[in-house]
């Protein structure tokens, strides 16, 4: 039992009030899976962020004489069929995959919140925006992505270089095809919230709509947004891996986790570890992101909190 449950002594007046985030954290801590997920996710983030500075091996450097090696001190995860260091490739792959996941999530969050808020708050926009959401929901994601890659890859890589160009394309493609859930959740919450007394009160003293949204509504829908954010990361990482696995997405010499899987499939019988490493990494990151989301949902809901 945590000390959350102990009711604050009424006579202890000088003690500063507990911040709500502290309550959230205490509740979050009690969710073991979420905590484990947070630890693992942070580890992966750290590995991706500082890994290349510690393990200074070029992930694309080919050492022809060191092909298909097993784990050793020089190559902790072994080497691939061209003698490239697997650990360096895993780190580089994680960097790209996680970066794509985070950026695409941010984009879809902004889009989803914007659409949901507008649809929920302004009655006239509700119909058109929600039909737009339905339209996007009914689009098949992968075929759409394939078409986008085919159409825009060349012009983007021409303008921003092959890596940045395709990064922008993939982030954009995933972002604009995964905002719909967030939009629906936000709209539902806003519809309920805007009839509540404090919003009516704010409206009655003449608060302009913009202010109402930023001061009163947005903070109150933060919790569903954060939950869908964590789920969005997982989703984006999986989509990127699927694209790379199909041989699309990043150029072939660019290690992402999906591409590592794709390259290793031919060797699955002789060198199964090459499939296992990226596979495990994808699963762990996605699973931990989901657990974090789960824990956050519980922690951010005052009705569940403390139970």
């Amino acid at each position: 039992m945590t000390d959350v449950l102990t009711p604050p002594a009424p006579e202890a007046a000088p003690k500063p009030p507990r911040s709500p985030w502290r309550d959230v954290w205490d509740q979050f801590r009690s969710h073991r899976g979420a905590l484990a997920g947070l630890v693992i996710f942070t580890l992966f983030l750290l590995a991706a962020a500082v890994g290349p500075y510690i393990w200074r091996v070029d992930p694309t450097f080919i050492t022809i004489r060191a092909r298909n090696l097993g784990p050793s001190w020089t190559y902790p995860l072994g080497t691939d069929q061209l003698g490239r260091d697997m650990l360096a490739r895993m780190i580089a792959g994680g960097r790209i995959s996680i970066a794509v996941g985070l950026t695409a999530m941010a984009l879809s969050l902004v889009l989803g919140t914007l659409v949901g808020m507008l649809a929920g708050f302004f009655r006239r926009l509700d119909g058109p925006l929600m039909r737009l959401t339905d339209l996007f929901l009914s689009l098949p994601l992968l075929p759409l992505l394939l078409v986008m890659v085919m159409l825009f890859r060349e012009s983007l890589s021409q303008r921003f270089g092959p890596e940045t160009g395709i990064f922008i394309l993939i982030v954009f493609a995933i972002g604009i095809t995964s905002w719909m859930q967030t939009a629906r959740i936000v709209r539902g919450d806003v519809l309920a919230l805007k009839e509540r007394e404090f919003v009516l009160a704010a409206r009655s003293i003449g608060t302009p709509p913009g202010r109402i949204i930023t001061r009163h509504l947005l903070p109150n829908v933060m919790s569903p947004i954060m939950v869908s954010a964590t789920l969005g990361i997982a989703n984006a990482i999986i989509t990127e891996s699927a694209l790379s696995f199909l041989g699309l997405g990043f150029p072939p010499d660019f290690p992402t986790w999906g591409r590592l899987l794709f390259d290793a499939v031919d060797y699955i019988r002789d060198y199964p570890s090459r499939v296992i490493w990226p596979g495990v990494a994808i699963s762990l990151v996605v699973l931990s992101a989901n657990y974090i989301g789960d824990g956050l949902r519980d922690a951010l809901d005052p009705r569940i909190r403390g139970r």
Binding site: T60, F61, L82, R84, P252, D263
Partner: peptide, 13 residues
């Protein structure tokens, strides 16, 4: 094709 992508990587280097 896996062999062709290996060739690409080698020749790129």
């Amino acid at each position: 094709n896996a062999v062709r992508q290996d060739f690409q990587a080698l020749i790129k280097q």
